[in-house]
């Protein structure tokens, strides 16, 4: 039987640094996928997940065992993702080059965005439809579905993290999925 996260944290604080790898192993898939859903970019999701783990490690001595490690980790991740999205928005620039008078105005040339074979394989119609359907949901539903499905948090963990009654979490997840089912309709009958 695996030791609970909180016991691992206690051991790490006694100097067993390598045990943190166990925690990383437990959460890396869930965290990367959750961040990928938030950021829509694999590279960014991995980079931010690494940052979150490093940040969490540096703050482990301030972890309060009253709370669950998972809810703490995902809350930190959520805040980090929101900050990242905000910064991204600030960095958005126009693609139109200023007219320099030499008749060479127009759009900036972008580097070719060729998809790798892996990306191409992933970019199937259904995958795109799912992404679009989830992106089209109201934010609160998107968020809960991402936490449940990609972060694999239990209803109780989500309720604690979002400071919502358990019943509200259940209702919103249900309604969000119903909306997804309606939007995806044909894709789900394959």
């Amino acid at each position: 039987m695996q030791p609970p996260d909180e016991d691992l944290v206690a051991s790490i604080l006694k100097g067993k640094r390598l045990l943190f790898e166990e925690l990383v192993g437990r959460y890396q898939g869930r965290l990367v996928n959750y961040l990928y859903r938030m950021l829509r970019n694999e590279e960014d999701a991995h980079d931010l997940a690494q940052e979150v783990f490093v940040k969490i490690y540096g703050a482990l001595d301030r972890f309060d065992p009253k709370y669950r490690f998972s809810t703490w980790l995902f809350r930190v991740a959520q805040n980090a993702a929101i900050d990242k999205i905000r910064k991204r928005r600030l960095k958005l620039v126009s693609l139109h080059r200023p007219d320099t008078g030499d008749g060479d105005s127009g759009e900036w040339e972008l580097e070719g965005q060729e998809l790798t074979p892996y990306q191409e394989a992933r970019n199937v119609e259904r995958g795109t439809a799912i992404k679009q359907a989830i992106d089209g949901l109201p934010w609160e539903y998107q968020e809960l579905i991402s936490l449940r499905h990609y972060g694999e948090l239990s209803y109780d963990e989500i309720a604690k993290m979002k400071e919502m009654p358990l019943g509200t979490v259940k209702n919103k997840l249900f309604r969000g999925r119903q909306m997804l089912k309606e939007r995806l309709g044909d894709y789900l009958t394959d």
């Binding site: 790898e21 890396q28 991995h46 997940a49 690494q50 490093v54």
Partner: peptide, 11 residues
């Protein structure tokens, strides 16, 4: 190698 990268980056 993701977890190795994380472990290397820990302060």
């Amino acid at each position: 190698g993701f977890s190795d990268q994380v472990m290397e980056a820990l302060p």
